[in-house]
């Protein structure tokens, strides 16, 4: 698992004159590495770091113009943390400059509900995707004829653009659509909170479970089969083999897959934006940011910074406490060969 520590061996170079050459070699390699990596880092700094810093600076400025919630004029200029307070405490500027809580229906009143919706979608979709993905991966790992058909079929939902997926499921869940016909129901799927959320969750599960399954499959295929043989000889049951061998050994891959999916689900935008436009309790944080951009940049910048921090904290918790070490697993180790 730690081949990255010794690329010289992996590169096929004999580890001779280690004492003398290693230090010098590392230095020259370091210079070459810097030369090769700097362009990428510079580009990432321009397209990510600069906008993020710019967003933080913007978020400390007041948006000039009429407060859309209350209709009072707000002057621009330095605002301190006013934008953050506006979102976190759902405070708007009322008549006469008095802070009042934002009227229901305005964007300012939706921060905590959007946060709740985002977490709700994340937890529910990732939960089902993990279970279904695991099941799919176990089936795909088995040797049987026509396995490549299964692998190819699984890639179809993954390849379809999310925007098309959204339109497709919007059609499936239309009032006269095939879902209602098939189950003999007459539900207005995108018309109220429960069904609207269910429709988005089902579409998301359809679209992303294959990705989850493939990541878990790669983890499953790293487990050497002789462990299973040995356990079988020792009389371990199928369930015991699953609990004592498969689960612990696939756990690192599984945690990374879950981390990837959680971070992806937390920025969910395309499906709810196209299927419901954020109506009926489906406004996620990303939708709220986009809606705010059209009203005021600076306030939107504060909200996007909060969103970024929330996602960052979640990622941190995953890596720190749940052992999802994406960097470690990406930086070396035996690769799960997919045959």
């Amino acid at each position: 698992m730690s081949t990255h520590l010794d690329p010289a061996v992996k590169g096929g170079k004999a580890p001779d004159n280690k004492e003398v050459g290693a230090d010098r070699k590392e230095k020259t390699q370091g210079r070459l590495a810097a030369l090769l990596i700097t362009p990428t880092i510079v580009v990432l700094a321009i397209v990510i770091a600069y906008p993020v810093i710019d967003a933080i600076i913007m978020s400390l400025q007041q948006d000039e113009g009429l407060d859309p919630a209350t209709g009072t004029f707000v002057a621009g200029g330095f605002a301190g943390f006013a934008n953050y307070i506006h979102w976190l405490f759902q405070q708007c500027t009322g008549p006469g400059g008095v802070e009042v809580s934002c009227p229901p229906g305005t964007l300012g009143a939706q921060f905590w509900s959007a946060t709740g919706v985002t977490f709700f979608f994340t937890v529910v979709t990732v939960f089902f995707e993990t279970i279904l993905g695991f099941w799919m991966a176990v089936i795909m790992a088995r040797a049987f004829r026509g396995r490549s058909v299964l692998r190819a079929a699984v890639l179809v939902p993954w390849a379809i653009p999310t925007a098309v997926t959204a339109k497709l499921w919007f059609f499936i869940f239309a009032f006269d659509g095939i879902a209602n016909t098939l189950f003999n129901t007459s539900i207005l799927w995108t018309g109220s909170e429960g069904p609207a959320r269910a429709a988005i969750i089902i579409a998301d599960i359809w679209k992303t479970t294959p990705f989850m399954a493939l990541l878990i499959l790669a983890g499953l295929q790293m487990i050497p089969s002789d462990i299973y043989e040995a356990a079988k000889v020792d009389g371990a049951s199928t369930w015991q083999r699953f609990r004592m061998i498969t689960l612990p050994l696939v756990k690192p891959a599984l945690m990374v897959a879950i981390l990837f999916r959680v971070l992806d689900a937390m920025r969910m935008y395309d499906l709810p934006a196209i299927m419901t436009g954020g109506a009926n309790g489906t406004t996620t944080l990303s939708i709220l940011v986009v809606n705010q951009i059209r009203i005021g940049f600076n306030s939107a910048a504060a909200l996007s910074t909060i969103t970024f921090l929330i996602i960052f904290i979640v990622a941190f918790i995953f890596v720190r406490f749940l052992g999802a070490n994406a960097v470690e697993s990406a930086s070396g180790g035996a690769k799960g060969k997919l045959k």
């Binding site: 990432l44 990510i48 913007m58 937390m266 920025r267 944080l285 951009i293 910074t305």
Partner: peptide, 28 residues
């Protein structure tokens, strides 16, 4: 292929960047 200091850091930055939420850069 190369052995150099800060490799982990670079990998971390790249992975972190790939999971970066699009809304965070779209406003500025």
């Amino acid at each position: 292929r190369l052995n150099f200091r800060g490799k982990f850091l670079v990998l971390g930055i790249v992975l972190g960047a790939s999971m970066f939420p699009g809304v965070a850069i779209v406003t500025p």
